[in-house]
């Protein structure tokens, strides 16, 4: 991982020195463990702030919306797919970007570490597929595969789909995983069970909209939840209002979501709202053979009309 950091710094410095970009977007260490934050580097001498490890789960494509300058951006698999989305949706031009591709081996789920660690987590480091956690009580070591974010553990697009520079050779994609096993399990339940399940799932929601803010797809100037004339959805914490918000938020991501996990990661209550967006991803795959952000040459599933579309293909 540290070789990634050095390579990212080297590329960023070169791009800035040669004036190929005005800014490089990457990650720097956060003020608390496991919370790397986005970092905007504008001068070659500042590139040493950039880092890469398994706490870079934020989706950096979120910071590209409507930018006018030339930008170098560090992108793992899911970020690169969201960059493709942004280009297709005219939120940024391909010519503005120098994409620094990072083959990704998954991001650590900070909630899992906190749950498994004894006492407050003071420092988290990693080496050779192991995660070392330092707490006030002592040191603990976990296998990285046991503490991955759930979306990373079933990810099948770890390598960037577009890039101008790569920090390392592509990693092997996971073959023996079923990204939609959790959705299929829910589909197998009865209607009543599913209604109850989502009641429980969404009950802790405090309507803070962190999921929306962390999502690179949510770039509307005025979000439907903030609009007052007309008011599309009730603003209270009534379970029906909460459910309406989550259903619509998910639906706005239909055919666009890359399951990067930014929403769940940002949620202060740890709600797995990805179960909603993933259902739509699964439907898009089943109905249209579509996965978001894989190519600049094809239009999104909900953006094309085919004469043989049937009632059943209304998403």
């Amino acid at each position: 991982m540290s070789t990634y950091t050095e390579k990212i710094r080297e590329i960023a410095q070169r791009l800035l020195k040669e004036c190929r970009v005005e800014m490089v977007i990457g990650f720097r260490k956060g003020s608390v463990p496991m919370m790397n934050e986005p970092c905007f580097v504008r001068k070659p001498e500042e590139v040493d702030a950039l880092v890469w490890d398994s706490n870079c789960g934020i989706n950096l494509a979120n910071y590209l919306t409507n930018r006018k300058e030339k930008i170098g951006i560090v992108a793992k698999g899911c970020d690169s797919r969201n960059i493709v989305n942004h280009i297709l949706e005219n939120k940024i031009k391909r010519e503005q970007l120098v994409i620094i591709g990072v083959p990704c081996q998954g991001m650590i789920d900070k909630r899992k570490i906190v749950a498994m660690a004894q006492g407050e987590v003071l420092e988290v480091t990693e080496s050779d597929g192991q995660v070392h956690v330092k707490t006030a009580a002592g040191d603990q070591t976990f296998d990285k595969k046991d503490v991955l974010q759930q979306n990373c553990s079933v990810c099948v697009h770890r390598n960037p789909v577009i890039s101008d520079e790569m920090v390392a050779d592509p990693v092997e994609e996971q073959k023996d995983v079923d990204p939609y096993a959790d959705v299929a399990a829910l589909e197998a339940m009865t209607t009543d069970e599913r209604w109850a399940f989502f009641d429980d799932l969404l009950a802790p929601c405090i309507r803070c909209y962190a999921c929306r803010n962390a999502c690179p797809l949510c770039y509307c100037p005025t979000c439907f939840v903030d609009e007052a004339k007309p008011q599309w959805v009730g603003k209270s914490q009534d379970p029906i209002d909460v459910r309406t918000f989550h259903l619509l938020r998910a639906y706005h991501c239909a055919g666009r979501c890359t399951d990067c996990g930014a929403c769940e990661r940002a949620c202060p209550m740890g709600i797995n709202m990805r179960l909603l967006t993933k259902k739509l991803n699964k439907d898009c795959l089943d109905l249209y053979g579509w996965e978001a952000g894989l190519s600049l040459d094809s239009r999104p599933a909900l953006d094309v009309y085919k004469p043989n579309d049937t009632n059943d293909s209304i998403l």
């Binding site: 209607t191 009543d192 599913r194 209604w195 639906y251 909603l276 439907d283 579309d309």
Partner: peptide
Amino acid sequence: MKRLLEYTGIESDRLQFSWI
């Protein structure tokens, strides 16, 4: 939307779409 609503526990015939 129909599939998503059914998935979250709405009866399957409650919402219907058709091309006409």
